[in-house]
Write a protein that binds this DNA or RNA. Structure first.
Ligand SMILES: [Mn+2]
Ligand SMILES: [Mn+2]
Ligand SMILES: [Zn+2]
Ligand SMILES: [Zn+2]
Lengths: 171, 171
DNA sequence: TTAGTAATGGAAACCATTATCAATAAGGAG
DNA sequence: CTCCTTATTGATAATGGTTTCCATTACTAA
């Protein structure tokens, strides 16, 4: 029966998790600011997302959380992920397999905004940031032009490349 | 009871539909080439897609087809759309509402490859091609660089901008 | 403590998409 | 044109990811 005051036992994922010194985790402020409570399931879920570099489905998250907190329900995982998406803390992406996948969008010191290569054969996902700079530049221009022309307020974009990964090319 | 030899009564959508002169419709050859049969439901479905500039869901297509051929089943619509996607005749896109949407990818004289603006409030979709040229240029470069770096064979890409359309900005 | 409310989790409901399978019909051979 | 082979169809049932319900639990402030 995990309690709030035992939460310091939660694995933090070392430096990779996106801690901010020794204080509360960086997202605590965001939560308090919105009047949301910091609960065991939410901690656990964010913790799972912080520790992985993969693109987890809701069930993946559920399984990972379940190992440490077996009484956290799948429903709560869905609810929490939705909340985090809505807060901008987590990205929800569709890669064409038929389940939503989630990843931390960017901690203050965390991963940068990036795009994806998607293997249409094996489903592998490759993050890339290398060529983003030029892309961002063009995107900014394009967004401005589109916004003006269609009187559209652009808040976000999605770029994905589909094809065959190195493994799947071999055959 | 529509019969094959009545199919010339199918509305063709005028010039916008992508006819190739007076002969069989342009995709007939593709079908024969693959050994696929040309059937009433397939004609009707392609006809619906040819006549609209919207991004129809499978059910939308079903409803439209159903008005003229009430005995065409939803299952067949799904199957046919999947076939057309697999043949490259139709694009299947996810806009974040939870249903796949379909549009003709490009007839020989048909619409060009394009990207989308998606209103996250009302769901409106805006096609744009205006700024594509520069994008394509960068995309080509990016694709080449990514392909080399990750040994990835890129076959396709998806670009979408999310935000608020002119209507939804007013409030 | 206590009341008020946010959050939770198990179970049932939802709903787009697929799988089944017997019936139908496209299209080639004759 | 007729017949035959088999691709295609469509009603129905099943699937599976996601939501909804609602009674229970647990923060938080007074
Ligand atoms: Mn990623
Ligand atoms: Mn379009
Ligand atoms: Zn692969
Ligand atoms: Zn809108």
């Amino acid at each position: 029966m995990p309690r709030w005051d035992t939460m310091h036992d939660l694995p933090t994922g070392g430096q990779a998790g996106g801690r901010h010194g020794r204080g509360p985790l960086w997202w605590h402020g965001r939560f308090h600011g919105c009047g949301y409570r910091i609960t065991v399931p939410r901690q656990a879920i964010l913790n799972v997302l912080s520790k992985t570099s993969e693109h987890l489905s809701a069930e993946d998250v559920y399984i990972a959380v379940h190992k440490i907190y077996p009484n956290v329900g799948l429903t709560t995982v869905y609810r929490t992920l939705e909340l985090l998406v809505q807060m901008g803390i987590v990205c929800k992406i569709d890669f064409g397999d038929k389940r939503a996948r989630y990843e931390l969008s960017e901690g203050p010191k965390g991963k940068r905004h990036h795009h994806h290569l998607v293997c249409t054969k094996c489903g592998r996902i490759i993050d890339y940031t290398d060529f983003i700079d030029k892309e961002i530049e063009l995107l900014t221009k394009t967004e401005k032009a589109l916004a003006k022309k269609h009187n559209f307020e652009i808040n976000n974009h999605l770029i994905q490349f589909y094809g065959l990964c190195s493994e799947c090319r071999k055959e």
